[in-house]
Design a protein around this nucleic acid. Structure first.
Length: 375
DNA sequence: GACTCGTGGAG
DNA sequence: TCTCCAAGAGT
């Protein structure tokens, strides 16, 4: 371990940074919904929603969520399906489940009051190092760092840090630096200032250095290396999965849907019945033959997995959906259900007016909408 | 440390 | 069209 394994900075630079950033933040901060309250619960909900999710995407969800679940008690007492439904389309659905689980723990163990102790908050489900620091500093103004992607980018540039910010160990190092930078009595504004600077000025591509409050001492700018920092390893491409899905409608216009398992991808969400196809490198067959094979595999797969008999009648559409780590290429077939078949417990018939009762991932929302507009 | 876990906007 | 990604956490 050499002396350079941890970042160091002198107090004079620290004071400069905090003073300039705080003044800039207090004059330029955006008027965001969750900044209008110091309620730890509201801060908490916003931080969970904002994980890996853009501000503009979160805002409408945040308003709806706070209207539906305005307090710790309201969320703790709500049916889990209602919470998942409120999260529909936002992605990373385990966040919703973990949030409600943690809120229930706050109700039971802390009398409904979000604790102001970093250790206790960190132990809550779905609350990691960043979110714990954000709640501590923003709601309680306690001097805990809140290091997200913005903060890593901003500090990497200013202090010329060349560690790969995609590595977890780098976040730990930057956390130590960020903790040291927090000015007395202004943790909340300072942490939000760092993030605000990263979101609006020190952006990933073509940052607006000329409006930056700390540009005159920014290492990356002084050395002309703004574009090459931060160092970040590129993610590997998602793996391909080919799938075939069944659209089954009855005479009343109801759709056959099923609920996904409680763990894993899209846990607990509703979907169209479908199967994964063998990923053999298709030997250049014509499209019609490939669809025929997929349709056959769909019928056989649903019979084997769920014990239901369906007969593909026509190809409806192809749909692609890209998750962070998987790419689904799905062929969708309009199918007929075998008469008199009993449905497994995780299957339902969904009437058109029941759409609001079930939470679907967006890829199935699109397919269902396309089917609805085709009939 | 590497993988899992969504989505849609921006360039 | 494609790439990167946006206020990360769990395993």
């Amino acid at each position: 371990m050499n002396a350079k394994s941890d970042y160091t900075v002198d107090k004079e630079a620290t004071d400069y940074y905090a003073d300039r950033l705080l003044e800039w933040y207090r004059r330029n901060k955006r008027d965001l919904p969750w900044r209008r309250s110091k309620d730890p619960y509201r801060i908490w909900v916003s931080e969970i929603m904002l994980q890996q999710t853009r501000v503009d995407t979160v805002i409408p969800y945040y308003h709806r969520f706070m209207e539906k679940f305005p307090t710790v008690d309201a969320l703790a007492d709500a049916p889990e399906d209602d919470v998942l439904k409120a999260w529909e389309g936002l992605g990373y659905y385990s966040r919703a489940r973990n949030l409600q689980s943690a809120v229930r723990e706050v109700k039971e163990e802390y009398g409904g009051v979000v604790p102001d102790d970093p250790e206790q908050v960190s132990s809550l489900k779905g609350v990691g190092p960043y979110t714990a620091g954000a709640i501590m500093s923003i709601a309680y103004n306690l001097p805990e760092p809140a290091v997200d992607g913005n903060v890593m980018r901003v500090l990497s540039r200013f202090f010329l840090l060349v560690d790969d910010i995609a590595k977890p160990s780098t976040r730990v190092k930057i956390e130590k630096l960020a903790r040291f930078l927090i000015p007395d009595g202004a943790a909340g504004d300072f942490n939000q200032g760092l993030m605000e600077l990263g979101a609006t000025v020190c952006t990933p591509k073509s940052p607006h250095c000329l409006t930056c409050p700390v540009m005159e001492r920014c290492g990356a700018r002084l050395e002309g290396r703004v574009e090459e920092l931060p160092v970040k390893a590129k993610a590997k491409p998602p793996r391909l999965e080919t799938r075939a899905a069944a659209i089954v409608a009855d005479e009343a216009g109801r759709l056959l849907i099923r609920q996904r398992p409680a763990k894993g991808l899209l846990a607990g969400m509703w979907e169209l019945p479908h199967v994964q196809l063998p990923d053999a490198p298709a030997p250049a067959v014509d499209a019609a033959a490939a669809r025929g094979e997929a349709a056959g595999a769909l019928a056989a797969g649903l019979a084997a997995a769920d014990g239901i008999g369906i007969f593909p009648e026509a190809w409806l559409t192809d749909a692609e959906h890209i998750f962070s780590h998987i790419r689904w290429e799905m062929q969708v077939f309009r199918c007929r259900l075998a008469a008199g078949a009993a449905l497994p417990p995780h299957y339902r018939w969904m009437a058109p007016e029941e759409r609001e009762r079930y939470a679907f991932p967006n890829l199935f929302v699109r397919i269902i909408d396309e089917f609805a507009s085709s009939v």
